[in-house]
């Protein structure tokens, strides 16, 4: 493949991503979110911002998912400023955010009475271009609702994280990605008793314009450590792609 042909393909790829609602990689230096080791699965090797990510779980309550979301949020808020957290039955303990490097007073909590109100509030917040990110705990998200959120972020370039509690109907929607997070037993730090660092199994079930994958990650208050794949024997069945 000659260099000219390579460039053409790159351009076309970028164009397709733009049409799919993914922001083209900008000239500014992209944040790598500490996910550098797995960035090859993201389109153009960059964790997509300015889109809607969906985070699912099979656990109740979804503490592991919240933890992963807080980790992403802390990176999203590095550049910016303020974020919103929309939910109906919030159990998030605000002081815990301090452990992720997020000052809890920089989060605006919107506690809606119903799922419909929460979706409305989330859309309204996503339209506000001055927010760094909007996290929404949403049980019912059909295709139309997700499309509305997607249209909101396309204009404002705000990143949305939709947390789906256990039991949410996971239907086809227009979110750019679908992550599935579950807890894993921790390994105590060598020679020390007690609970080790939080460990999660993070499955990327869908990534528009990218690839899927499954990793084990260990989160300590400083960093997210992606464990080498040798420790994560994945079967072919688990690598299937949804949507």
């Amino acid at each position: 493949m000659g260099p000219a042909k390579h460039d053409i393909i790159q351009d076309l790829r970028r164009e397709i991503l733009r049409l799919q609602g993914l922001k083209a990689a900008t000239t500014e230096i992209p944040e790598d979110f500490g996910l550098g080791a797995i960035s090859h699965v993201f389109p153009q090797g960059v964790f997509p911002t300015g889109v809607i990510h969906e985070l699912t779980t099979a656990e109740s309550p979804m503490s592991a998912t919240s933890g992963f979301a807080c980790y992403l949020l802390s990176h999203l808020m590095r550049r910016g400023t303020v974020s919103a957290w929309v939910s109906t039955h919030r159990t998030l303990f605000p002081p815990a955010l301090a452990g992720y490097g997020i000052e809890p007073d920089r989060i605006l909590f919107i506690d809606a009475a119903s799922g419909r109100d929460a979706l409305w509030a989330m859309e309204e917040a996503l339209r506000c271009y001055q927010l760094a990110a909007v996290v929404g705990e949403v049980r019912d998200l059909d295709f139309t609702a997700s499309r509305r959120l997607q249209l909101a972020v396309e204009k404002s370039k705000v990143t949305g994280l939709v947390l789906r509690p256990h039991g949410s109907p996971l239907v086809q929607n227009s979110c750019v990605s679908r992550w599935h997070i579950s807890s894993l037993p921790s390994t105590p730090t060598a020679g020390l008793p007690g609970v080790g660092h939080a460990r999660w199994k993070v499955e990327l079930l869908k990534m528009r314009g990218g690839k899927t994958g499954m990793w084990e990650m260990e989160w300590s208050p400083e960093t997210l450590h992606i464990l080498p794949p040798a420790q994560t024997p994945a079967t072919a069945a688990e690598w299937r792609k949804i949507g």
């Binding site: 815990a96 000052e103 007073d105």
Partner: peptide, 9 residues
């Protein structure tokens, strides 16, 4: 804000 490790929920 306190630095102690606190549960997320």
């Amino acid at each position: 804000w306190p630095e102690k490790l606190r549960p997320v929920s």
